[in-house]
């Protein structure tokens, strides 16, 4: 059971009317891996996440998530999901702790209050993300990085087997991004969770993840993030101007430039 993959896409096409968003996707993600899907805007990254979550159905092919279909697994709480931070209303009248508690209330029967186990889980989750001291702050008044941590804590409080993140670094400065990716690595090691995220930031993300999948409607590469990612793959995924976007020490396509 442990060795079965967390996510399997077999020959998956996803179309919206005549528009083909994803084409012939074959992708297998093992349990416990930290994987990032990278690609340009409009390349189908969010569609791929939505397919894993069961929000969109494949036009052809099949998807298995945690040994079930996405529609079966999605409402079970086994998948923790973080949408883009911009989706949240900053005036919403909840504290950071209230947000984390939502994951536990969701699993309580009609009209019941939280029990001691719930409170322990909420405290542990806040502690893992280093936000216990800010738990009573208004959620909307926290910085982007802190709100992102609270949303991670909420996902963890639901005790998921798979964590899905949509562009988690958007709106974070370089320091907050770095610390956020380190947090993901820690969580993966501590809790043995499979983490799948999408990003258009191939330069930073490739230094933190185990595997990278380059997606621009089709999957152009899926494998180790370091060493194997060639400039040709990056150009095929992002287009001919990609060199401008990825100049940093993690970028294998710029090795010659660094030398």
């Amino acid at each position: 059971m442990e060795d079965l993959p967390a996510i399997v896409f077999k020959d998956v096409d996803i179309c919206y009317g005549d528009f083909v968003a994803l084409e012939r996707i074959n992708l297998t993600i093992a349990r416990g891996e930290l994987v990032s899907v990278v690609g340009p805007n409009g390349g189908g990254k969010t569609t791929l996440l939505h397919a894993v979550l069961g929000f969109v159905l494949p036009s052809s092919g099949s998807i298995q998530v945690l040994e079930g279909s996405p529609q079966e697994v999605q409402p079970s709480g086994r998948i923790g999901y973080l949408p883009q931070l911009s989706n949240y209303d900053r005036n919403f009248p909840v504290s950071a702790r209230d947000v984390v508690a939502m994951a536990r209330f969701a699993q309580r029967p009609f009209g019941t209050k939280l029990c001691e186990d719930d409170r322990v889980s909420i405290n542990e989750s806040l502690n893992v993300v280093g936000m216990l001291d800010k738990q009573h702050h208004h959620f909307g008044s926290l910085s982007g990085g802190q709100r992102q941590r609270i949303l991670i804590a909420r996902a963890l409080a639901g005790e998921p087997e798979l964590l899905i993140l949509d562009e988690p670094s958007t709106g974070l400065d370089a320091v907050a991004q770095d610390s956020f990716y380190h947090l993901l690595q820690e969580i993966r090691h501590q809790r043995d969770i499979t983490i799948l995220m999408v990003s258009h930031d191939i330069g930073t993300v490739s230094g933190f993840v185990d595997q990278i999948a380059c997606l621009n409607r089709q999957l152009h590469y899926h494998g180790r993030a370091k060493d194997c990612l060639t400039p040709e793959i990056v150009r095929r995924t992002f287009g001919p101007h990609m060199n401008v976007l990825v100049h940093d020490e993690n970028c294998t396509s710029c090795e010659h430039a660094h030398e």
Binding site: L53, F55, Q74, P75, S76, G77, I79, G80, Y81, L82, P83, N87, Y88, D89, F92, V94, D98, V99, A101, M102, A103, F105, A106, Q107, R108, F110, G111, R154, G158
Partner: peptide, 26 residues
């Protein structure tokens, strides 16, 4: 009254974050 208070927290979750609430069975 029973609907409101019985489902208050689930309504709150769905109002804050519809998509995530649905992935937790709400």
């Amino acid at each position: 009254i029973p609907f409101y208070f019985g489902f208050f927290q689930k309504l709150l979750f769905a109002s804050f974050d519809d998509a995530v609430a649905s992935t937790t069975g709400v």
